[in-house]
Structures are given as C-alpha cells and as structure tokens.
Amino acid sequence: MLLWFVIGYWAVSVAIGLIVALRVRNTADYAAAGHRMPLYVVTATVFATWFGSETVLGIPATFLKEGLRGVVADPFGSSLCLVLVGLFFARPLYRRKLLTIGDFYRRQYGRTVEVLVTLCIVISYLGWVAAQIKALGLVFNVVSAGAMSKATGMIVGATTVMVYTLFGGMLSVAITDFIQMIIIMLGMVYIGWDLGGPAGGGGA
C-alpha cells in the first residue's frame, strides 16, 4: 500500500511539474518564476527546500548520535541564515529583478567575481544535494522493502527532480515544493499523533 502511494505521489509530482512548465515563457519565468510568486508559495518553496528528505531522515539521526552539537549548523545555522537574508537582503535584491545571486555580483564587481561566486555556491551545495539524493535512495529502498536498491532509488529520485526542473525551472520547482510541503506537514502531524496518542492516553 505504502509503495503504491509513493509511486502515485511520484507520478503526480512529475506530471504537475511538466504541466506547470507550459507556463514558462522566458528566462525570468524559468530562473525566478517571473518574480511574481505569492508569499505562501515562496514560503512553501523555502520550507520544502530546507526540510526535505535529508532533514527529515538525516537530522534526527544526527541529533540522537551527537546531540545539539551535531545540529548546530543544520538546521539551526541554516535557518538563522534564512532569517537574516529575509530581514536584510531579500527585499533590496528582489527589487532589482535579479535572476541569480551572481547577477548582483556582476553588476557590482564585474564578470570575474560573478563566476567565482557562482563556483563557490555550486561547490558548497554539492554536499547538501548529495545528502538529499542519498536520503531519496533510502526512502525508495525502504518503501519497496528492499526490492529497489539504494543506488537505483538515488537515480530515480534525482532523475525525477531533474526532469521537471529541466523543463519548468523555478516555476515547476515552486509549485511541486508547495505540494511537497503539504505532504510533509500532513505526514509529520500524522506521525506525531500516532506516536503521541498512546503516550498521551488518547486510546483510553
């Protein structure tokens, strides 16, 4: 049952991402969703990006193993960065209608600095993306009861995201993230209710 739910969820996510891709008309739509996403979609995108499979599966295990010291950087450090950027930088950068953060550095300091900053961003994200893909592989492996290996699950998960991102860019990512946030929240609420019910005496 769980496996079929995951397969259905995977198919719906890909379909929605490709359907939304039909609305992409130009570079601004592709790279920045046309700079016209409503607040709730932006919030969902940020949430789903930072609270994905690696956060749900990896961070709790790290906390149990190392305590608070092991999760200072992620999620606390990364969350603090999001808050600081939102408070002090997001609005001025948004008003400039930039497509990437590299555009800001190009306008201020030139092409060379833009390339260097972009390379630093790409390198810094390799570990984070790798953790997400590894967690996806674990999910597919577990829900298939071992029928799908972790390596195959990683390929399936990465390919899925690449397909709708390639065709729809940020617009497809934002809409699918919105749906994923709803699923994550419902799942976490259900897990909390299921685990907390017996402890709280709900079954009496």
Rank of each mutant, 00 (worst) to 15 (best):
V129Y: 09
V20N: 01
I7F: 14
I101Q: 04
G52K: 03
F76T: 03
W128G: 06
E114F: 04
Y9W: 15
A44C: 12
R25S: 14
T112N: 07
I175F: 04
R107D: 12
Y125G: 09
T43A: 14
V117Q: 02
V139K: 02
Q180P: 01
V129K: 10
G77M: 09
S149T: 15
A32S: 06
I175L: 06
A44I: 03
A199E: 12
I179K: 01
G58T: 07
G203D: 11
L195V: 09
F140P: 00
G102N: 06
V143R: 04
F76M: 10
A33S: 08
G202C: 12
P198W: 08
L84P: 00
V20P: 00
S13I: 13
W10K: 02
I155V: 14
V14M: 13
T159E: 07
V189S: 07
K97Q: 14
L18K: 01
M154W: 05
D103R: 01
N26M: 06
I191T: 12
L195Q: 14
G77T: 09
P38V: 03
W10I: 06
Y40R: 08
T160P: 00
L138S: 11
V72F: 11
I133P: 01
Y30W: 12
G17C: 07
V129C: 13
R106A: 11
D103Q: 05
S79A: 14
A135K: 01
T49W: 09
V72E: 14
G146S: 02
S124K: 10
G77V: 14
R106C: 14
P75S: 09
F178Y: 05
A147L: 13
P38I: 04
G192S: 04
Y9E: 15
A15N: 13
R91Q: 12
V85L: 11
A147Y: 05
M37W: 00
R23D: 06
L57Y: 04
F63S: 03
G70K: 02
T112A: 14
E114K: 09
G8S: 12
F88G: 07
Y190D: 09
